[in-house]
Design a protein around this nucleic acid. Structure first.
Length: 765
DNA sequence: TTGCACGAATTTTTT
DNA sequence: ATTCGTGCAA
């Protein structure tokens, strides 16, 4: 008799993780160890063991992870998968709060304020209190608030600690008041309010505990204090069936509140927990794993585990060194070109950097060499201005007490309602103690220029609400765009940018009407529940989705492109060939002057994450100098982490450059670096260097070029450089002066005829 | 109310 | 360098 499909092909620890359904379970899943596989199989196994799908609750951090898991579970068990609740922390909490937030004095149609709304509100409060934003920047207040909320603290606790500026706390209190007044919650509130309700109303908690009996938490190392509390409450403590999956070595979100001690202390917090380590890696070659592990093993706060693979040693890691950031990028690009010539596909290659700013030189050279590439993590769809403006309108329509939506779009497009008008409106609101929208309605009757503006605004919103009765939310977007004049405003601009914005609005409208998220429409006993189909409810659901999804990252995965991204964004992904670039002290690790050991450990984990993305080939690059904020050039030594990598794993030894130094100065520089790193020179990682006189467009080892200023620069006899063909000499020039045709002789007597205007040429000096 | 000019800031990112 | 936000004059 063959064993069930969902148990087949698992290695022993994987199988143990899948088969352990009861009690607390910690699955330590190293990079590439088949985590998702275990999670999905585990769900299948539960069903096989008679667990009802509606009793299973799997929480993730990102929508992407949630939908991936849903998909894979569906592949395994088919339609029943729809009844398993797989969702992000935040959307599950929204779902819970839509019914249970009444216990906190909210109504079910509360809105969610995102970062932007949050900042606007804070700035407003600062203004109201006459706080100089230079003395206390609103950002610092948000930081304080978020940090505290991540830890489930309230203003009173912070005040009692006495380490926070009282004025900041005052702002926070006012913020909470305003939020409540606007029937709004921020992202942190979503989690914290569930905890609050559950703590204050045990019967509500029990309702959910009865329904959700099998819990799974993905990326447990990234949970913050309040998420931990949430899970702990729901699981009902040590007797609950709680499986958490994570990798402490991949905890890289401390800056947004992730608390690595949650995973490190799991066994303490849930006594009797079973721990399973998934250490077999199915992704990378042994050398890649070794390199990644030697770095991360230096951390003192981690759970010991050793990844291994059956993939074999693989090739050694290679090191690419450039004189400056551009030449580093150029050399990496050349390397990539040779890979492409060898027949590797562009989509097999990724470039990973520590900070987004490092992408620029790569974009430049890729453009010039025509290497197709995608930048991951450019501005998110829902963060674009036009999209947010439309959402502002929708929010106001969905929730008349929403203030942020109103203030955002009140004067967009222009209705002659500027600061002055807003001030009057606020004053009026305060007098009458009504919602801002109600105040606007009242102002509308007052005549005058502002009165007219308010009248047209209020009428627009009212008509919108009316329109929604028998139209879809997507149609409402179009309605608002048209009736508000927003559409006309963009059309009048007649620029590419404006046209792009128009497209985005159209895309939004379509997106709104597309798939209604397949929420498990079941009550706590697992019985189907009819979704509220009122137009307002649909709009509400859409807004939640729009706010809670960084979505539409639209990774153009049509393939054929080299991927560029940050370490953080690379987590969970894999590529046959990976370039981890910018591995200099001061760049990676990226540390402030007053850094702590914890921060260094986090940087090590980032290295670990970045390295373990590579399947077959890992290339590291760095530069000898870097430009800081466009001002001044600094020398930089190799990243301290390169010194941790055993020399035999890295081509040319340790973090030092390979042979063939770029010049005698560079030679001395390399010797100096060797000296410094040997003598613990980690501290003085950079020191200023004078700025070179001319600013070349492009410096390579043997070649200095400048950009073509005018076509007259390109005369017969001029030495030029071409991205594809290399260096050459112009032998002939024909055609008219405005569009000359050049015959260029490249090396090995290869002659090419190029149009000067279109070929990307540079002049060799 | 709007448009321009100047000054300041500038890891990492999800929801 | 580049972007973003604020302050001031038209």
């Amino acid at each position: 008799m063959s064993e069930p499909l969902h148990l087949q092909g698992l290695n022993p620890p994987q199988r143990q993780a899948v088969e352990t359904l009861r009690g607390p379970l910690l699955i330590l899943a190293g990079a590439g160890s088949g985590k998702t596989r275990v999670l999905t199989r585990r769900i299948a196994h539960m069903l096989d063991q008679g667990v009802y799908p509606s009793q299973i609750f799997a929480v993730t951090f990102t929508n992407k992870a949630a939908s991936e898991m849903k998909e894979r579970v569906a592949e395994l068990i088919g339609d029943k998968a729809r009844r398993v609740w797989v969702s992000t922390f935040h959307s599950s909490c929204v779902r819970i709060l839509r019914t249970d937030a009444v216990h906190l004095g909210y109504t079910g149609n509360f809105v969610i304020y995102d970062d932007d709304d949050q900042m606007r509100l804070l700035k407003q409060i600062g203004k109201d209190l006459n706080i100089d934003p230079k003395r206390i920047p609103p950002k610092s207040i948000r930081r304080m608030m978020d940090d505290a909320k991540n830890k489930l603290q309230d203003p009173d606790q912070l005040e009692a600690e006495g380490r926070t500026e009282p004025l900041k706390i005052k702002v926070w209190r006012l913020y909470e008041q305003r939020m409540k007044g606007a029937n709004a919650m921020d992202f942190n509130d979503l989690i914290n309010n569930v905890v609050k309700v559950w703590r204050a109303h045990p019967e509500v908690l029990q309702k959910w505990q009865r329904r959700l009996r099998y819990l799974m938490v993905d990326e447990y190392q990234d949970t913050n204090r309040s998420q931990y509390e949430l899970i702990k409450l729901l699981s009902g403590g040590p007797s609950g069936n709680l499986a958490v999956v994570g990798d402490d070595d991949q905890s890289i979100y401390a800056f947004r509140g992730a608390d690595i001690t949650n995973i490190l202390n799991f066994e303490k917090d849930f006594p009797g927990a079973m721990v399973v380590k998934l250490e077999q890696n199915y992704r990378s070659t042994s050398r890649i794993l070794q390199a990644a592990m030697t770095v991360v093993k230096r951390n003192s706060h981690r759970k010991e585990k050793t990844l291994w693979t059956e993939k074999g040693d693989g090739s050694v890691l290679r090191m690419i060194v450039g004189r400056d950031e551009q030449s580093e990028a150029d050399r990496v690009a050349q390397d990539i070109q040779s890979k492409l010539r060898e027949g590797r596909k562009a989509e097999e290659i990724a470039i990973i950097y520590r900070t987004n700013a490092r992408s620029r030189p790569f974009e430049q050279i890729f453009q010039r060499l025509r290497i197709p590439h995608v930048l991951v993590g450019a501005r998110k769809f829902y963060q674009r201005r036009e999209v947010r403006d439309m959402l502002g309108y929708l929010k106001l329509i969905a929730n008349p007490s929403d203030e942020m939506g109103l203030l955002r779009v009140l004067n967009i497009p222009r209705r002659g309602l500027g600061d002055k008008a807003v001030q009057t409106l606020r004053a009026h609101q305060k007098n009458q103690e009504v919602t801002l929208f109600r105040a606007a309605q009242e102002m509308a009757g007052m005549g005058g220029r502002a009165g007219k503006g308010f009248a047209s605004f209020v009428s627009l919103i009212d008509r919108g609400r009316e329109y929604l009765r028998d139209h879809t939310a997507g149609e409402l977007v179009v309605f608002i765009a048209n009736e508000s004049g927003y559409w006309g405003m963009l059309e009048a601009e007649d620029t590419d940018e404006a046209r792009g914005r128009l497209m985005n609005i159209r895309a939004l409208a379509e997106d709104v009407d597309q798939e209604e998220e397949t929420l498990p429409d079941i009550d706590e006993d697992g019985n189907p529940v009819a979704l509220d189909e009122s137009p307002l409810a649909r709009l509400q659901r859409f807004l939640d989705r729009a706010t809670l999804s960084g979505q539409a990252e639209e990774l153009p995965d049509d393939g054929g492109q080299v991927t560029l991204m940050t370490c953080h964004l690379s987590k969970g992904l894999e590529y046959p060939i990976v370039y981890v670039v910018g591995m200099n002290e001061g760049g990676f690790p990226l540390l402030r002057d007053d850094f702590t050991e914890e921060q260094v450990e986090e940087e090590r984990r980032l290295v670990y994450v970045a390295f373990t993305r590579a399947m077959d080939e890992l290339v590291i690059s760095r530069s000898l100098t870097r430009i800081q904020y466009g001002r001044g050039i600094e020398r930089c030594s190799p990243s301290r982490f390169l010194g941790d990598i055993p020399p035999e794993l890295l081509q040319g030894g340790t973090g030092r450059a390979r042979k063939r130094p770029v010049s005698s100065t560079a030679d001395r520089e390399l010797a100096m670096q060797a000296f410094l790193s040997k003598h613990g020179g980690g501290a003085g990682h950079t020191r200023p260097l004078q700025r070179p006189a001319p600013k070349p467009a492009h410096v390579d080892e043997l070649r200095v070029t400048r950009k073509v200023e005018s076509l007259e620069d390109l005369q017969v006899g001029t030495r030029i450089f071409h991205g594809d063909y290399g260096e050459g000499v112009i032998r002939n020039r024909t055609g008219d002066a405005k569009n000359p045709k050049l015959t260029v002789e490249f090396s090995q007597h290869k002659r090419k005829t190029l149009f000067a205007r279109y070929a990307r040429l540079e002049i060799v000096q």
